[in-house]
Amino acid sequence: MNRSVIFADVSLLLVAFVWGTTFVLVQNAIAFLEPFSFNGVRFFMAAFLLGGWLVIFEREQLKKINKKLLISGIIMGLFLFIGYAFQTIGLLHTTSSKAGFITGLSVVMVPVFSFMLLKVKPGFNAIIGVSIATAGLYLLTMTDKVSLNIGDAYVLICAVGFALHIIFTGKYSSKYPALLLTVIQVGTVALLSGIFAFFTENWQQAFETGVLFKTNVVTALIVTSLFATALAFFAQTAFQKFTTPTRVALIFAMEPVFAAAAGFMWANERLSFSALTGCLLIFAGMVFAEIPAKKTLSIFRRKTA
């Protein structure tokens, strides 16, 4: 495994950490600012930050804008919008830890969609890793005493959106400049969120200082716009070219583990023994997928000889 792949994996794991630990922040914020309005402000702030950096320091990338790049960024932004829209709505009806767990089901969807859409067959280790992580996700989601509800269904749709976003990020990230592609996809999410907020929510709240400057809201907006949006999606777009969509999904499967830890520490959400076991299985699945396939097969052959 070369240094680029290792650095990419570590960077993507940090992205999963940031996403997982912001579930509680978002859930607290949307109690005051409705979901589409929150996402509209969050992604607009991120697009403004990234766009400013692009214009000031990476202006040469602007010369590479063309129709194909715009369409690629919009497609990525559309699936990202679906993911965040349904995730944020789901957080109104379910716990932050359960939302993190169900979002992690994208780890199962990515290799299936990759094969269906891109004809990419997952490797032996990836299949085993996904299977182990899926068992972990089952323990995290289906064996808890808390029953499933409409919020969980919304978050499941979000998992589909995120899975497709991972796949198309892998497809386009190696073709176009990372920063420019990130600005377009983040801007697309901001625009779509704003449109849906205008038609479905009390969008005027997004311009009320009494709402925006509530501690829960302003903290969530600053943290999520800078770290969980601008930096996170730039990192994903820049580093996913060094790995496969299935591998990225396995790394991102750690997000619900981080979400569970954050929910336990900051929101006093209980974690059962099965949930803890599920966390360990997800981690094991990610680690197993990192082991070179030749080494795994040689160990397997020695044991069966």
Rank of each mutant, 00 (worst) to 15 (best):
E34C: 12
P35H: 07
P35K: 03
I56C: 08
K119W: 05
G210A: 10
A235G: 09
L297I: 15
I82C: 11
E290T: 02
F81L: 04
L78D: 08
V146T: 14
T141D: 04
D144M: 13
T209V: 12
K63S: 13
Q61A: 15
Y154K: 02
L14H: 07
A159M: 00
I150E: 13
L140Q: 11
V110T: 02
A232R: 04
G40E: 03
V110C: 08
P177F: 07
C158V: 10
S131R: 11
S37R: 02
N216K: 14
I6Q: 12
I128R: 07
V41K: 03
R42H: 08
N216D: 14
A153V: 14
T103N: 01
F258C: 01
L212Y: 06
T277M: 13
N202Y: 12
K294I: 13
P245Q: 05
F32G: 10
T243V: 02
Q27S: 11
L54M: 06
E201K: 12
T237D: 04
A29L: 03
V257L: 05
F36K: 03
I299M: 14
H165C: 08
I102D: 02
V146C: 09
V287F: 10
K171C: 06
M265E: 09
G194H: 11
A46F: 06
A253Y: 04
A289T: 04
F283S: 13
L297M: 14
G170K: 04
K64H: 13
E255P: 03
P122Q: 03
M286I: 07
I30C: 01
T304N: 15
V108S: 14
T224A: 08
A85K: 02
V189L: 11
F273S: 14
L250A: 00
I184Q: 00
L271E: 00
A238C: 09
A230C: 05
T237G: 05
V155S: 00
T141M: 00
V120G: 10
G20S: 02
F258H: 01
L156A: 13
K64A: 12
A163P: 01
Q204N: 14
R301K: 15
F252S: 00
F113C: 06
V189R: 02
N149P: 04
G136V: 03
L180D: 09
L92P: 05
F168S: 02
F32T: 14
A163R: 06
S4L: 15
G104A: 02
G263Y: 01
I184S: 02
A261Y: 12
C158Y: 06
P122I: 06
S225C: 10
Q185W: 09
F81R: 03
T169Q: 12
T224Y: 06
S174L: 11
F43P: 01
N125Y: 10
L14V: 13
V223E: 07
A289M: 01
A135W: 11
F273G: 10
L78S: 15
A16E: 01
S272G: 13
V217P: 01
G187M: 05
A249N: 00
V189W: 05
K63W: 06
G104I: 03
F57I: 09
K98G: 08
Q61N: 13
T143L: 15
I30Y: 02
G210H: 07
D9T: 05
K119L: 08
F113Y: 10
V55K: 11
A8S: 12
F258T: 00
K171W: 10
N125C: 10
T169W: 07
T103Y: 04
Y154N: 04
L25D: 00
V55N: 07
V211S: 09
L280D: 10
F264C: 08
A220M: 02
G194F: 14
L281D: 04
